[in-house]
Design a protein around this nucleic acid. Structure first.
Lengths: 206, 206
DNA sequence: ACCTGAACACCGTTCAAGT
DNA sequence: ACCTGAACACCGTTCAAGT
């Protein structure tokens, strides 16, 4: 067969197929990806440097999916709005791909557009009066919380096995709460609200 | 060589060696583990069912060591103290084994001692006036933040590659901040403080 | 440039052979 | 029972050969 008249693959096709594979809960392997694309595993390397880059491209596509019209506007308005924008983008991207999160925690963020979204947030925080060190800590805190919350999306229906002590405060709390994605979403909103309040209280030189 | 007069291995030896390997930041593989123990990879399977069980044994050992120093005292004093206690226990368990966290997030944990520490926290929050649903959300929020922060402990020295735009607010924030574990710890403390403030503000029926 | 297929250096795990 | 070493079914990645 050798080289076809028209390329059988493209980076976009590879990224789409990979995401599809991951969303199905299947292990993300190069052979499986090749098979899904009707191509030999080694063919992928003509378009992509390797497995790691594929994951990085997925991250980029997801976090930037709504950003085609993003002309890097300097942040305006209260800093809380910038955080909420960032949170929403972050969260909605991963909510539909819960299995993806664990794969992405394996490596560092290298994508330039993603870094730029951090920069936007940093500017908003700095302008609002957070010190540089606080900017770094606040972004780290938000990032950590978002990451943990994203992993929480892939958690089982029953997060805690309270059946062993049904009269506990924990069991009561679980009983009155929603389950599944609803539970994860409610907790995320609650935590975000708490963080916005808490960070505002800590804003500025000590 | 065949069977030695005295076993060369034991479960404890395997667990110790595995943890040692992980803490060195080396990839946790069976061949590497065998080599470190001066034994062929296949020998391990006489003592352990496989890689997964080794990780489970490590978790168990870590949780045990934390539980011995933790008498089940009913919560007293402000709820913030209970949260701080919980946070400290949680964090110190993983702070010495940062590379372990990612390996253990692959599975859920339902160990009884761990659940009991959640229950203690739930009681403190309930007593303090959080509604049952808020108790569930608050614990989830803290859990997510702690997990994200634990993963952060294994982050590379340079979390964000700001070298490409050295004049950014992000670069300035990074420049004035500590690096490594110091950075992760500072952010953790900052985030915990913010959460305690924010959760206090949200406490009670809306 | 782009797909193929053989090849390489790895994995985790199994199992018959030896004592 | 417990270690060995060969073997199996996988990985991710490389590369010469083909068009």
């Amino acid at each position: 067969m050798a080289r076809p008249l028209k390329p059988l693959l493209s980076r976009a096709m590879i990224v789409d197929a990979a995401l599809h594979l991951i969303d199905k809960g299947r292990p993300f392997t190069i052979p499986a990806l090749g098979q899904h694309l009707g191509v030999h595993p080694s063919s992928l390397y003509h378009h992509v440097s390797g497995r790691q880059e594929i994951l990085e491209l997925i991250r980029e596509q997801l976090l930037m999916s709504g950003a085609t019209s993003a002309p890097a506007t300097p942040p305006s308005g209260p800093w809380q709005d910038s955080v909420r924008d960032w949170a929403q983008k972050y969260r909605s991207s991963f909510a539909e791909h819960p299995h993806l999160v664990r794969l992405l925690t394996a490596q560092t963020v290298e994508s330039l557009p993603v870094l730029q979204s951090y920069e936007t947030l940093a500017q908003a925080l700095r302008t609002a009066g957070f010190t540089p060190v606080q900017v770094q800590m606040a972004i780290t805190v938000l990032d950590n919380f978002f990451l943990g919350s994203a992993l929480d999306l892939a958690a089982p229906e029953e997060v805690w096995q309270t059946s062993q002590f049904p009269d506990s405060a924990l069991a009561a709390a679980v009983r009155e709460s929603p389950t599944g994605v609803e539970r994860a979403d409610a907790a995320f909103e609650f935590g975000l609200k708490a963080l916005l309040i808490g960070l505002e209280a800590l804003r500025g030189p000590a």
